[in-house]
Design a binder for these strands. Structure first.
Length: 569
RNA sequence: CGGGACGUAGCGCAGCCUGGUUAGCGCACUUGACUGGGGGUCAAGGGGUCGGAAGUUCAAAUCUUCUCGUCCCGACCA
């Protein structure tokens, strides 16, 4: 490709509306342009990268028996009504009507459609298992799209679905798929972790996320370097402390005045005690009304764990106006004693003695609170979000590291949720009808490319992992209008093309500085710089983008070495 | 959905508070010349419904109201 013919509108300055580095660099490198909030046009350089990701995905998913299909982006409401998700999915589902006034949606995911295909065509256990996948544009009307292509509303996704006779067989495919995912992200040159994850609204029995470790990630990942345990903090288990016996005699319950001291920090410094000796009470609302969660003052309560412990349908932090309807509730002075709603307690609280809680009246707290003596507990369990340096729940001496992660892949075992609702059944060996057991496996294609930039960039621009680079080599003649430089540049270009190496020839009339800046920005792994002085000495300069290392090599022999140099990167 | 901010040339911004001829700057763009190893120099140019609508005023980029768009924080989220 000649650079003069490539549509790569590079920018010197970062766009004002970009926040994270991958977004800035993708726009600056001329890979993408925004069309509307969360909706982007992918320009040639961007598409080349996405195609690389797609191809890697195809190869690995084919390898584990996936068959590629292409399902409609527009889906009829009937299927979603059948699966009960038409009402459940909410505003994120983009809905509209056709000219006959029939309702449709733009597919945010494709369980319904693929299940519909399978139920119509597959009858017997002999035809199972099957794995289908597609790479398709999805639309989710996110409340807040951000970070460019990383969290767009419209986005490219690989989604795969598997159908099985039973859970055990589903697990076999699930594990194969997990391995394929590891291969994919390794080939993409990413540092990632496979972590336990919440299955969210897709539903199902268990699931793993593939998280690329990067500060700009929106998830928190907890992992133990010693034993390898890794989980999204949404459900990362906390290790219960052993029950302790009080060193002195139990204190008596005592009410103290704490005017204006509402936060844990304020109360801790006012009473001159550590935050660990305070227990905070957090109000939530579920389908049955208000409930309270208790965690230690220095801990954060975890909504998902709370929901799981209660076993309720929905759970969210109590709204202010709901709290306002209860005159006995005083925010800042909430406490479990005398509270007339179900109380759920973190197990770290249950081993405490002589702690402080709100007194359920303005400007007062209790000290000397004892769990056994003073609290009426609905249930105790793991309620808090783990933090760095917390003990690992899985091994003896390990500790949690908590870092940010970008969720690039997610795999689920769905069970029979969709097959039951939509009657996707097979006949087993006994001639009996059973719902198929399903698995589902997604990868964000654009997000994977963006995550690769988050992990591989420097102050000059993108440093593409070799397998994702839009071009492997860029040839930069210092002055292409100089005949000798042009002849050599063209010759190298021709030869590399013959060798099947994706090469960009910067034939533009720009000055060298500009061409180098663009090459750095775009992130092509190898630069071949051809200048008059070096060439007169029979040499060309080879520069490695990643390390900025630059070496002179004899021309023309060096051209034949390029494949090896690339492999060594 | 709650809170905050922004919208002026392709991009990045100033001007607005305190209304007053032809609305500026940098980059980019066009033409020419000189240049040619990290965005060079000089000269000459082109490009604007100041997001939109209504209002206040002798006069609106500037003040008011409404509206649309975009971004940030939060809530939410395969």
């Amino acid at each position: 490709m000649h650079f003069s013919k490539l549509f790569a509108p590079t920018l010197k300055e970062s766009p004002a509306d970009a926040e994270v580095i991958s977004h800035k660099l993708m726009v600056r490198a001329g890979m993408i342009r925004q069309v509307a909030s969360g909706i982007y046009s992918i320009l040639p350089l961007g598409l080349r990268v996405l195609r690389k990701v797609e191809q890697i995905i195809r190869e690995e998913i084919n390898q584990v028996g996936g068959q590629e299909v292409f399902l409609p982006s527009i889906q009829p409401a009937e299927l979603w009504i059948e699966s009960k998700r038409w009402d459940f999915y909410g505003k994120e589902l983009l809905r509209f009507k056709d000219r006959h006034n029939r309702e449709f949606c733009y597919g945010p995911t494709h369980e319904e459609v693929i299940t519909d295909v399978v139920r119509k065509e597959i009858r017997s256990y002999r035809q199972l298992p099957v794995v289908f996948y597609q790479i398709q544009t999805k639309f989710r009307d996110e409340v807040r799209p951000r970070f460019g292509i990383m969290r767009g509303r419209e986005f490219m996704m690989k989604d795969a679905y598997s159908f099985h006779v039973d859970e055990e067989d589903t697990q076999r495919t699930y594990h194969k798929m997990a391995k394929a995912y590891s291969n994919i992200f390794n080939r993409c040159g990413l540092k990632f972790k496979q972590v336990q994850a919440d299955s969210g609204t897709i539903g199902g029995s268990f699931s793993h996320e593939f998280a690329v470790l990067a500060d700009s990630g929106e998830d928190n990942i907890g992992f133990c370097e010693l034993c390898g345990y890794a989980s999204n903090v949404e459900l990362a288990k906390s290790k219960p402390s052993p029950a302790s016996t009080p060193q002195t005699q139990q204190q008596d319950l005592k009410e103290v005045e704490t005017p204006g001291k509402k936060t844990v920090e304020e109360v801790a410094s006012f009473l001159n005690i550590p935050a660990q000796h305070i227990v905070k009470t957090i109000l939530f609302e579920n389908e049955n009304g208000l409930v309270a969660g208790l965690v230690r003052g220095d801990h954060e309560i975890n909504l998902i764990k709370m929901k799981n412990l209660i076993g309720c349908e929905s759970l969210h932090p109590a709204e202010e106006d709901v709290i306002a309807k209860h005159p006995e509730l005083h925010c800042g002075y909430l406490g479990p004693i005398g509270l007339k709603i179900p109380i759920y307690v973190d197990h770290e609280v249950s081993v405490l003695h002589d702690f402080v809680t709100g007194a359920n009246k303005p400007s007062a707290h209790f000290t000397g609170v004892q769990v056994e003596r003073d609290l009426k507990i609905e249930k105790t369990g793991d309620l808090r979000t783990v933090m760095t340096d917390d003990p690992c729940p899985n091994c003896e001496t390990g500790k949690y590291q908590v870092t940010r992660g970008i969720e690039v892949g997610h795999i689920f075992i769905l069970g029979t949720k969709y097959s039951s609702a939509m009657k996707a059944v097979y006949i087993d060996q006994q001639g009996k009808e059973n719902p198929m057991v399903m698995g589902c496996y997604g990868i964000g294609v654009g997000r994977t490319a963006a995550a690769a930039i988050e992990q591989n960039h420097d102050e000059r621009g993108i440093v593409w992992p070799r397998n994702l680079a839009p071009f492997q080599v860029v040839i930069i003649p210092v002055n292409y209008s100089n005949d000798e430089l042009k002849v050599v540049s063209d010759a190298i270009y021709e030869r590399l093309q013959e060798m099947g190496i994706e090469t960009l020839l910067d034939d533009r009339s720009d000055r060298l500085g500009g061409k180098l800046k663009d090459a750095d920005l775009i992130g092509v792994p190898l630069q071949i710089i051809i200048g008059p002085k070096n060439l007169a000495a029979g040499q060309v300069e080879i520069k490695i983008r990643k390390t900025n290392e630059s070496n002179l090599h004899p021309y023309p022999q060096v051209v034949e070495d390029i494949p090896d140099i690339l492999k060594s990167l």
